[in-house]
Design a protein around this nucleic acid. Sequence first.
DNA 1: GGCGGCAATTGACCCGGATCAAGGCACGCC
DNA 2: GGCGTGCCTTGATCCGGGTCAATTGCCGCC
Lengths: 253, 253
Amino acid sequence: MQSKYPAGRLPDPPSPIADDGDETHFCGTCAFSSACIAAGYHKPELAALQCLVEHVGPFRAGEHIFRTGDPFRAIFAVRSGTVKTRMVDKEGREQVLGFYLPGEVIGLNAIYPEHFPCDAVALDTTFFCRFSFPAMSALASRVPAVQQHLFRMLSKELGTASLLAGDHSADERVAAFLLDLAGRYAARGFSATRFHLSMSRGDIANYLRLAAETVSRVLSRFRAQKLISIEGRELELLNPARLREIGQTLLRE
Amino acid sequence: MQSKYPAGRLPDPPSPIADDGDETHFCGTCAFSSACIAAGYHKPELAALQCLVEHVGPFRAGEHIFRTGDPFRAIFAVRSGTVKTRMVDKEGREQVLGFYLPGEVIGLNAIYPEHFPCDAVALDTTFFCRFSFPAMSALASRVPAVQQHLFRMLSKELGTASLLAGDHSADERVAAFLLDLAGRYAARGFSATRFHLSMSRGDIANYLRLAAETVSRVLSRFRAQKLISIEGRELELLNPARLREIGQTLLRE
DNA sequence: GGCGGCAATTGACCCGGATCAAGGCACGCC
DNA sequence: GGCGTGCCTTGATCCGGGTCAATTGCCGCC
């Protein structure tokens, strides 16, 4: 297995979300799957999709996939691993914008400004499908399914962006965050009740606009109430229904 | 002037942002202008844009342009007036998602769910250009400029959606809000230092995730510091530079 | 004119979560 | 081993903004 990686870049121990060893299975769970496969993998137009996609990686934890200000040329679908996007203001304070799991796509917010407005940082060892955006646009003009797919992905991200905007308590935010992750894992075929948190408490807190201490306290409280079992970054949801009650105002407003 | 409106629907007194009397000038400031005009108004493909657009209105203050759950068929460019979009949770609490000024477009976040995920409510008398989305998609397939325009508008809205996500003080939020409005008015050719706030203090507060009382207090403080002049909903920015300092972490993170 | 309703303002009080600080735990490195 | 370094947890304190409440001003309407 390891021989497929460049020397000196040993991969992390295989994680439950990594799936780069099984390409077709990955593609089945990817956000582009309907464009790549379902809509007719064999049509000549869609063969073009195979040409404009490029497999990149591995990136190790902490490495940048792109940086603020980089010229926008491509969007990236996560094949395995986890990514955070963030902005850093001039005082150096970090602002986490989102986490991206296998099958999800980063870079869409760079289309308008034509430069990436944020950093993308790997949280563990990650691989990507890189889609040249000019080529993708051109393909979208010829294949309505691809165009529609892009519209839908963009519109979908608009919906999720407004999620953490509300003024909600720390409990609501954390509960909703855990359930959101669970749902996204489930949508890609992974366990919805047991998974690994690739991000630190600090990243979670930053994303949820809380202090790291508050996240820690809420998780401790949830554990005491037997809502979750958590040890380090290994999480199990013991009472998803109750968590849903707590976070529901935030999940579907 | 009034004779052009249906009986019983007297318009509000002409507002500085209304411009429906001068169609070509409006189009020059609209978010679709490059698609409608600049990219070649006379090409046969673009004549189609004129066919799929429909002028609708007037809507009076408080009337809905669309409601949560309505099937998505079209997007709307504001021709004159102001709109707020909002979600209402099951407890009946309102969540303001955004305000839209003349030249801006509402409804993009409905593409993915195929139903409007929010309400759009007129804040004063408003007129729209209604663009059938299926027709627009079809046109986008044939005219790359239209497709690119849609991608850019969607991506742009992604950027603004993440603006109010940060944890910022009430002063920062209000200052950034006022400057954001000023910039958007300026982008459409209106005064950047004097304008009318079409929305109530409660709407502003809700949008900024503050209490109405807090917004009121901040505005009073800004007035005492000679940063603004405000009387009711008539606003003048007296010291935009200082406001920019206050709100800068939020404006460009 | 007087009344009622709504938006806005202002003051008094309180609470949730930030901040500060201390300690524990697991890891890699010399 | 001993030590440093992150990351996480837990406790003590503080403050910004929410909440409650009273007042004012503005309109529309009877």
